[in-house]
């Protein structure tokens, strides 16, 4: 199945694959997430006209951006054939560490350095475990999630840690002429990730490594470094997302980003990133994040009990994933 994912690789290893011609159902599946996103927007607008108010839309974007930033990293890891369960723990740890600095512009640089160090180091450990020790990604990142969680709770003793400096509060929750400031952060990161993954040789190598590691080794790619790189990227992005989300929350506590590890996987998968690796797009994954947040918002618009958000999320996960399965 993984071999089928990449035409070039398939031609190297086997002559008789299943039909390589793009089929209609395939191209529908490719754009399903965007169609679904537009439908959700239209239906939400019909269900409640207040949905389209500038205020509501800008709130929605503010809330979606941190998830979207994490999803970029998660998508890169999954495309490379892995999985990162430690992202939420990295987010919270980065945000909590950020509250230790108070004051002006200098503090912002310090916070960025410290949080990026936390994210990068965690990613490096994850990557080394996966690439060098062949630990399954699920376990390696689960273990580092637990370790970070323990360290964080030991550091804060479980109490909320206060807020981030005002400048980061603006980045996390401010708007400029009605446009959320954090959207700019996402835009920069998304464009950069999109360019690297889809338009450079490096991105190609991520995909081929995820599609079939054996082939990637045969092609002479530095597979270990590619895998480690994907986890480091995910750790760095999670750290940035943690600081942005910390800036959105008034009080930063140990639970910042709780649930993001699974939500980010779900967003990437419903956005068309295959868990088996080697397939998917960054814009698709971002659309997945938007759909997830819009679906949660729709439950509120329809006046349903808030618990339905969780039920609906579950249904969306299974159905969306079923859409991408190759028959």
């Amino acid at each position: 199945m993984k071999v089928d994912a990449i035409p070039q690789v398939r031609s190297l290893v086997t002559k008789s694959g299943r039909g390589s011609k793009p089929r209609l159902s395939d191209s529908i599946a490719r754009y399903a997430i965007y169609i679904f996103l537009v439908l959700l927007l239209i239906l939400s607008g019909i269900a409640a006209p207040s949905f389209l108010s500038q205020q509501n839309l800008s709130n929605l974007v503010l809330q979606t951006v941190p998830l979207a930033i994490v999803v970029i990293g998660q998508a890169i890891v999954i495309m490379t054939g892995g999985l990162d369960l430690s992202v939420a723990s990295v987010m919270a740890t980065a945000a909590v560490a950020g509250t230790c600095f108070a004051g002006g512009v200098g503090a912002v640089i310090e916070i960025l350095v410290v949080s990026l160090f936390i994210g990068g180091a965690t990613g490096l450990v994850n990557g080394l475990l996966v690439a060098k020790r062949q630990v399954s990604p699920f376990l390696a990142t689960l273990a580092s999630m637990i370790v970070l969680q323990g360290l964080r709770f030991a550091w804060t003793k479980g109490a909320p840690s206060g807020g981030l400096p005002p400048i980061l509060r603006v980045v996390g929750s401010g708007t400029w002429h009605g446009i959320p400031v954090n959207l700019a952060v996402l835009a920069v990161l998304a464009v950069a990730a999109c360019f690297i993954v889809h338009f450079t040789l490096l991105g190609r190598r991520f995909m081929i490594t995820g599609g079939n590691q054996v082939t990637a080794r045969l092609l002479g790619y530095p597979v270990d470094r590619i895998i480690i790189g994907s986890y480091v990227a995910s750790g760095l992005l999670a750290a940035i997302a943690g600081v942005v989300l910390g800036g959105y929350a008034e009080i930063v506590d140990n639970q910042v980003g709780r649930g993001f590890e699974l939500d980010s996987i779900v967003a990437a998968v419903i956005g068309g990133v295959a868990l088996s690796g080697g397939r998917g797009t960054i814009p698709g994954a971002l659309a997945g994040a938007a759909v997830l947040m819009l679906a949660a918002n729709a439950v509120l618009l329809l006046g349903l009990p808030i618990q339905f958000q969780i039920v609906l999320k579950g249904v969306v996960i299974v159905l969306a994933a079923a859409c991408y399965v190759r028959r």
């Binding site: 699974l262 868990l275 579950g314 994933a321």
Partner: peptide
Amino acid sequence: LIVTLGTGAVLQGL
């Protein structure tokens, strides 16, 4: 992993 994540969410909601 995805299926049970989904049904897990549904069950938690219920």
